[in-house]
Simulated assay, not measured.
Amino acid sequence: MSSTARVAILLFTRSAGEEGARKQFLSHGSRADNAAVAARLIDHATATAHRAGVDFVCVDSARQAGATFGERLAGAVRATFARGYEYLLIIGNDCPQLTAATLRRAVAAVQATGAVLGPATDGGVYLLGLSRPLFESTPWLALPWQTRHLGAALRRELRRLGAAVHQLPALADIDDEAGLARALRQALARPLRRGLHRLRTAGRCVARPVWQRAGQRGRLAGRPHRGPPTS
């Protein structure tokens, strides 16, 4: 068995519909519009993970169990380790800058050190790599999941257990409309950028009454034509 056969990437995610209901990527968009953004991010995370060269496992809302985020994530990690893997890279759907090259780097690092962290710029993490013994030794449910303190807490806990934590470059994640706007100003894969930009533009086009549109056309009739502002 090759060394990489012992490693898997676990995508832990809500369904696109649940993400669209909980996260407001487009403040003027509908729930369906926000779900479309979430679906695009999930598809990108899935495609990126498949290009990393190791097994891929996705645990979405339908396969999660537990009352809290920590319980649901711990259950997903435990079940994936039970398939026989020795190392897991756990990712979410909200880091569009994550690349297959970064994942391949994390695969090598987790086998060398037993622990890898990809810190998010908001204090959380976009990637957590663990060996099976470290997972089994970690007080998983006591960690401050979904807070800006998570990254620091994970580093402290892993070092307490004696792990030499390999740290990846910090990347931004997307949790809201401001995060989406920031992401579109960063280096992204071209298809993802096009898709997110199209969804964002469509979500900002809020229909107005016919009389209001007609009035505006009248006011602008005597003005020179100008292109739209860039964002």
Rank of each mutant, 00 (worst) to 15 (best):
D122K: 03
L10V: 02
A170N: 07
Q212G: 08
H28D: 12
S2N: 14
I91P: 05
R223I: 10
A52S: 08
H225Q: 15
A153Q: 01
Q212R: 15
F12A: 09
F25S: 04
A172N: 09
R223H: 11
R185G: 11
A74W: 04
N34C: 11
L168M: 14
V165I: 02
D176I: 04
P144Q: 09
L26G: 06
R31I: 10
E136D: 10
A39P: 07
V210Q: 10
A32E: 15
P191S: 03
D94E: 12
R40K: 09
I90E: 00
Q212M: 11
A153D: 00
D55S: 14
Q97N: 13
R200H: 12
G203A: 07
A8V: 01
F81D: 03
L171V: 06
S2P: 13
R185I: 04
G75H: 10
A106L: 02
Q24P: 08
E157M: 10
P144M: 03
L89E: 00
G123H: 02
I174L: 05
N93A: 15
K23R: 15
G222R: 08
R51T: 08
A178S: 11
L168P: 05
R204P: 07
D173R: 12
R223A: 13
P96Y: 06
L220S: 12
T48N: 05
L130I: 02
S30T: 15
W145V: 01
G195E: 12
R78N: 10
P224C: 10
E86P: 06
C58A: 14
G17I: 14
R198E: 13
T68S: 10
G92T: 02
L158C: 02
L192V: 07
A39W: 06
D33N: 09
A100M: 05
T121R: 14
A172K: 05
E71Q: 15
C205Q: 15
L26S: 03
Q186G: 11
H28K: 12
A32T: 11
L180H: 05
R72Q: 15
L134S: 02
L143N: 03
L98A: 05
S2G: 10
H197D: 11
R63S: 14
G84D: 08
V59M: 04
D43K: 11
A62F: 08
H225D: 14
R198P: 08
A65W: 08
P139K: 04
T230Q: 11
V165Q: 01
T138A: 10
A8I: 01
D94A: 05
K23I: 08
C95P: 10
A207I: 12
R31F: 07
V165F: 01
D176K: 00
F135P: 00
D60G: 05
R72N: 04
E86W: 07
P144V: 00
T138M: 14
I42F: 04
A74Q: 15
A142G: 03
L220T: 13
A178D: 15
A221K: 03
